[in-house]
Design a binder for these strands. Structure first.
Lengths: 108, 108
DNA sequence: TTGACATATTCCTATAAAGGAATATATTGG
DNA sequence: CCAATATATTCCTTTATAGGAATATGTCAA
């Protein structure tokens, strides 16, 4: 068996750094055509289209055509499961920090 | 070029569901030997060892030997970059929720 | 219809991974 | 040292990429 498909869920989709870059860009710039992503991130156009397809399939972005251009925008809801999972670990590192702080104060 | 190595960073490491299960288990149970993970999650022992190796390489877990057993524990700090990245999108879905709420109140 | 622009898809290659089975390594007790 | 327990590694097969190059599809303007 091979690795799970990149399109199987958001976890797999965002494992690819380029796709995270695209999401970062779209988060800042709202709805944008492919060409602007290509230019802004310095990637090849086919590469961007392919990454957008993966993001589209897992619902991390939506798209609509406007004339010759296709506009993409993020759907932040799709990132939520990822955030929720990571957030369950937040209390543990917060705990660690408290302990580190206490130790520092004890020594000072 | 193929996909990035699962050991290249936490994003790639946690893309695999089994590895997330292992982290979930370790988060709840603190330091545990491999055998308990195997039993608790119903996975094959070599499979668990291999997944733990990946988690170890990206720093998501630590280990120490105690007699015949090797005890693993999570290092929640390693999940932090993941949380931080996803958290940057939180404001967007919060925004969406506010708008949905406003609309609902306007209609009600 | 034709040409230009914008995006998507296909074909190719190299690479890596996950699971299963078998085996190797490490540690302890006798 | 030997047997038993606990864990790690290796070998194999199947599958899925990501990027590059080339090409196809879609849309508009004249």
């Amino acid at each position: 068996m091979a690795r799970a498909a990149t399109t199987s869920d958001a976890f797999n989709a965002v494992a690819e750094p380029r796709r995270r870059e695209i999401l970062n860009f779209l988060a800042l710039h709202a709805e944008r055509p492919v060409g602007e992503i290509v230019e802004a991130l310095g990637m090849e156009q086919p590469s961007v289209s392919k990454h957008l397809r993966v993001l589209l399939e897992v619902g991390l972005v939506n798209s609509r055509r406007e004339g010759r251009k296709v506009l993409y925008r993020i759907d932040p809801q799709a990132i939520r499961p990822l955030w929720e999972w990571t957030a369950t670990f937040e209390k543990y590192w917060r705990h660690q920090l408290v302990k580190v702080k206490e130790r520092a104060e004890g020594e000072g």
